[in-house]
Amino acid sequence: MINIKSIWENHKPTGEVIIRTRIDEIPHLNCYAATNHITGQHLYIMSVSKNIAIPELKNYRFKGVEIYTLSIEDKIELYLYLLDNELKDIFSLFIQNILEDIEPTITESEAITTTLNVVSKWKKLFDKINFNGLSLEQQKGLIGELLFLNYLLNDDKTAVNAVSSWTSAERDFEAKDFTLGSIGIEVKFTSSKQPRIKVSNERQLDAESLNELFLVLYSTEAVKDNGISLNSIVEQTRKNISTEEERSFFNAKLQLHGYFEEDSEYYNKMYSLKKSFAFAVTSEFPKIVRNHLPLGIYDTSYSIEISALENFMIDLENIIKNI
C-alpha cells in the first residue's frame, strides 16, 4: 500500500516553492505527492500528455480542496490542492483511494477518468460532512459506533482490520456501520428509559449483498460524572489503535463523520452504559426493506420494540465467532 502521508511528512526544502516526489509504485503514470514549502499545504499532481481530454473541473471542486489544471509545455498537470490543513487526514485517505484505483489502469486517459470518478465519490462524502458541529443525536450515534470499534480493537481476531471495517461514512447508501467481509453490523445507541431501536431508512437493515447482518444496541442513561462522552471515547479509541498510520486513518474517518477537535468543548455530555444487546437480522426479523415498499415510497424511518426481538437475540461474542 502506498503511504502518501509519509511521503508528504518526509519532504525537505529544496529551494523550490512546490516540493514534489514521484510515486514510483505506479511507474507507468507520472503521479506526484507535493508540498507547498511556503504554506505547508499538501498537493497531489498527475502529469499527462497534452492530447488527453480533461473535462471542465468546475463541478468537481468542494470544501477544503481546490482542483485545477495547468498546461506546461507538452503536458497537462492535474492538481488536487489541500486548502485547509485541518483536513489533511481526510485528504490523505482521499488521495490514497485515487492511487489504489489508478494503479491497475493502463492508459493516461483511463487514469484521468478513474481519478475523476473517485473525486466525484469523495465530493459527495465531503458535502455530507457537518462542519458546524454535531447534534446531540449525531454525537450519540458516533459514541455507539466507537464503542463497537473498541470492542473489535480489543479482540485479537479483529483488531488488525478494525478501523478499516468501520464503513459507515465511506460509501453512499449501501454501507453498514461496520463491514467485515460478507458480514455487516449496524450499531444503535439509546439513552431512552424505554430502550427501542430507531431505524432511519429502509436500507439500514437490508442484508442484500451480505451473508449475515447483525444489529448491536447500546442502552445507556445520561449521567453527570464518571460516564462515557464523545471526547473520552475518541481518546480511548486512539489509545487502542496500535499504529500511527491506522490512527491517521481513524482521524480521517472521524472528520468524515463531522468530528473536529475545535468543537470538542461541546462533546462532553456523559452516558453510563446499562446494557448491550445483539441481534441476528434474519429474513424473519421485523424490519422494512426496499423490496417491501410500494413504488414511490422511500426514506422510511420507524422504531422497533426490544420486546419483539427476543427470538433474534444473540451474545455479542457470537458476532466475532462468525467473522
Rank of each mutant, 00 (worst) to 15 (best):
Y151L: 12
S192K: 03
C31F: 02
I67Q: 03
W8M: 13
P286F: 03
N240Y: 08
N85H: 10
E170R: 08
L93S: 13
I320D: 02
L142Y: 01
I2C: 13
I314W: 10
D172E: 12
I323Y: 13
Y267R: 14
T69I: 05
I52W: 03
L43H: 13
T237A: 02
A252D: 04
L83M: 05
I90K: 00
V118L: 03
I112Y: 01
E103L: 07
H37K: 09
N318R: 10
E73P: 09
N51W: 12
N150T: 10
A175V: 03
Y32H: 01
I23N: 01
H11I: 10
R61W: 06
A33N: 03
T167R: 00
H292R: 10
N226P: 11
L136E: 12
S209I: 01
D177Y: 11
A278M: 04
Q194L: 14
K176G: 08
K128E: 11
R20H: 15
Y298P: 07
E244G: 05
A207S: 14
N117G: 11
Q138S: 12
I38P: 08
L82R: 08
I7M: 03
L70H: 10
D263V: 05
I23M: 01
G141W: 01
M270H: 03
M270L: 06
I323D: 12
E100T: 03
I185D: 10
A207K: 15
S6F: 14
N318H: 09
T105F: 01
F260T: 11
E108M: 00
S71T: 07
G64W: 00
K124S: 13
K58S: 12
D24N: 09
K50H: 15
K128M: 07
M313E: 14
V119E: 00
G141H: 05
Y259F: 14
K224L: 11
N211A: 12
D155K: 06
K176D: 07
M313T: 11
E9G: 04
N130L: 11
S229H: 05
F148C: 04
L256D: 01
E261K: 14
G227V: 04
F277D: 00
P13E: 08
Y68F: 09
A34H: 06
L134S: 15
I233K: 01
F173I: 03
C31D: 11
I7Y: 12
I67P: 13
F277I: 01
D225I: 05
V118S: 03
D263F: 13
K88S: 10
V187A: 04
S6E: 14
L213V: 07
S109M: 11
K176P: 06
S232K: 14
A34F: 08
K124M: 15
L256T: 06
D89S: 15
